[in-house]
Measured scan of single mutants.
Amino acid sequence: TFELKGKVGKVVKIAEDHYLVESEGDKWIAYSDEKLSLGDRVMVVDVDGLKLKVKRIP
């Protein structure tokens, strides 16, 4: 299986209740415990079905 946990991506869209993150050339629906901005670099900390939980990284 394709393992996304630990992968790095970038926030490419902000929606009302989720983010769109591009990682490894694909776009994924993501959510975070912190507020993210367009262009933020993020790391995948968990995968919930087809949704990614991400956190901001420097």
Rank of each mutant, 00 (worst) to 15 (best):
V54R: 00
G6I: 01
K13N: 09
L36R: 00
I57C: 14
V54I: 07
K35L: 10
I14Q: 07
H18Y: 11
P58L: 08
V44N: 02
K13A: 10
A30F: 01
S32N: 04
W28D: 01
L50G: 11
R56Q: 10
R56D: 02
E3M: 01
I57G: 04
K51G: 13
D26I: 11
D48K: 05
E16Q: 09
V44W: 04
S37W: 09
Y31L: 13
T1P: 15
K27H: 08
D46S: 04
M43R: 01
E3V: 01
T1A: 15
V11Q: 00
E34I: 04
G9K: 01
E16K: 11
V12H: 05
E22R: 05
T1Y: 14
K10C: 13
K13C: 10
D40N: 08
G39D: 14
V45K: 03
V45Q: 06
Y19H: 02
K51E: 13
D40I: 04
W28V: 04
G25E: 07
W28L: 08
D40P: 00
L4G: 15
L20I: 11
K10T: 06
V47K: 03
L38I: 09
P58T: 11
P58E: 12
E16V: 09
I14D: 07
D46Q: 03
V42H: 00
E24N: 04
H18C: 12
G49V: 05
Y31C: 14
L4K: 14
L20W: 09
D48I: 11
D26R: 09
G9P: 01
K7D: 03
V11I: 06
K7P: 01
Y19E: 01
W28I: 08
K10G: 07
G6Y: 02
M43I: 14
K51Q: 11
V8Q: 08
L50Y: 14
G6F: 02
E22L: 11
E16Y: 08
E22A: 05
I57M: 13
V11E: 00
L38R: 06
K35R: 10
D17E: 11
G9Y: 02
L36K: 00
H18Q: 10
R41G: 14
P58A: 09
Y31A: 11
D26H: 11
R41I: 12
E24T: 05
E16G: 10
K10Q: 10
L4D: 15
I29N: 09
K55V: 14
G6D: 08
A30R: 00
K7I: 02
E22V: 08
L50P: 08
I14N: 05
S32W: 01
K7H: 04
D33W: 13
K35N: 11
R56C: 07
D26C: 14
K55R: 08
L52R: 02
L4T: 14
S23F: 14
E22M: 07
G6T: 01
K10R: 08
F2H: 15
E34K: 04
S23A: 15
I14V: 11
A15H: 11
A15E: 09
Y19T: 04
S37C: 09
E34D: 09
L50Q: 10
I29W: 12
R41V: 12
M43F: 09
K13Q: 07
S37V: 12
V54N: 00
S32F: 02
G49R: 07
L50W: 13
Y19D: 01
I57S: 08
R41F: 11
D40E: 10
G25A: 05
D33C: 11
D33V: 07
E22H: 11
G39V: 03
V11K: 00
F2I: 15
G39H: 12
V54H: 01
L38N: 12
K27D: 10
L4Y: 04
P58F: 09
V44L: 02
I57Q: 13
F2Y: 03
V42Q: 00
G39K: 06
E24I: 04
D40Q: 08
G9I: 02
L20C: 10
A15S: 09
I29D: 11
G39Y: 13
L36W: 01
A30G: 06
D46Y: 03
V42P: 00
W28F: 13
L52Q: 02
D17Y: 11
K53G: 10
K10P: 02
K5I: 15
E34Y: 05
K10E: 14
L50H: 12
L20Y: 13
R56G: 13
V44P: 02
I29H: 14
V21G: 01
F2R: 03
V54P: 00
K51H: 12
M43L: 14
L20T: 10
R56M: 12
V47C: 12
F2C: 15
D26E: 10
R41S: 14
D33M: 09
F2M: 15
A30N: 00
K7Y: 03
P58M: 07
K55Q: 14
L38Q: 10
E16T: 12
I29T: 06
L20N: 04
K27Y: 11
S37N: 06
V11F: 00
V12G: 04
K5A: 15
A30Y: 00
L50E: 05
